[in-house]
């Protein structure tokens, strides 16, 4: 059954639901039936279900990292902090300073704010941990850090992914926020109540 090239084009147009007035009757009939059947008996997805979205997204990101499309925290290039982001960093630090001025109560109670330095975890004692965490988070993200909030055993905290080695501009930014720049690729900050409040 040899078809002319035009006839195949007519067949395609009819299959796609477009008019093909020059198509011959046989082609019209063939396409009309085939199209109607394909539309009526649409093929569904196979049995089963896709992977849960979170798991799927995690696998996608791992794959993208393996392919070098996105960098891991440990090998994030230093050049990541581009000129445009320096502006944000400066603005973030300024915003943080402003925030601290506007909320003096957090920083006037010097005795209750003890910073304990650790390699990857730093704790800040605060009478209002949640509020303090949110303010710090805002300051960090405003300064261009990749910071995420978390809560563990009722203690609010912040996870920060950092490049290694840490660029001086980011190290300075952390110091200005009262944090010690860590050596590793991540920093956790936890906000805890003073011992006397925790006992009550």
């Amino acid at each position: 059954m040899k078809q002319e090239p035009d006839d195949d084009q007519h067949w395609l147009d009819l299959m796609a639901g477009r008019a093909a007035p020059e198509a011959d009757a046989r082609t019209r009939k063939e396409a009309a039936w085939f199209r109607a059947a394909l539309l009526s008996y649409r093929l569904g997805a196979p049995p089963g279900a896709p992977t849960a979205p979170d798991e799927r997204a995690a696998r996608l990101l791992t794959r993208a990292r393996d392919a070098g499309v996105i960098a891991t925290a440990a090998n994030e290039p230093q050049g990541k902090f581009k000129p445009a982001r320096r502006w944000w960093l400066a603005a973030g630090i300024a915003a943080c300073a402003l925030l601290l001025v506007r909320v003096p109560s957090l920083w006037t109670e010097d005795e209750s704010h003890t910073l304990r330095a650790g390699a990857a975890m730093q704790r800040i004692v605060s009478p209002t941990p949640m509020q303090h965490r949110d303010q710090m988070l805002q300051a960090l993200t405003g300064a261009g850090f990749d910071a995420h909030p978390y809560e563990r055993l009722g203690r609010p905290g912040i996870d920060i992914d950092l490049p290694v080695p840490l660029p001086p501009i980011q190290a300075d930014a952390l110091r200005k926020l009262g944090l010690l720049p860590p050596k590793g690729p991540a920093l956790q900050i936890e906000f805890i109540l003073p011992p006397e409040s925790a006992r009550q």
């Binding site: 395609l12 299959m15 796609a16 639901g17 477009r18 085939f34 199209r35 394909l38 539309l39 649409r42 093929l43």
Partner: peptide
């Protein structure tokens, strides 16, 4: 072919 029919691909 399925996509042609379902989406009218040209």
């Amino acid at each position: 072919l399925r996509w042609v029919v379902e989406e009218g691909l040209d």
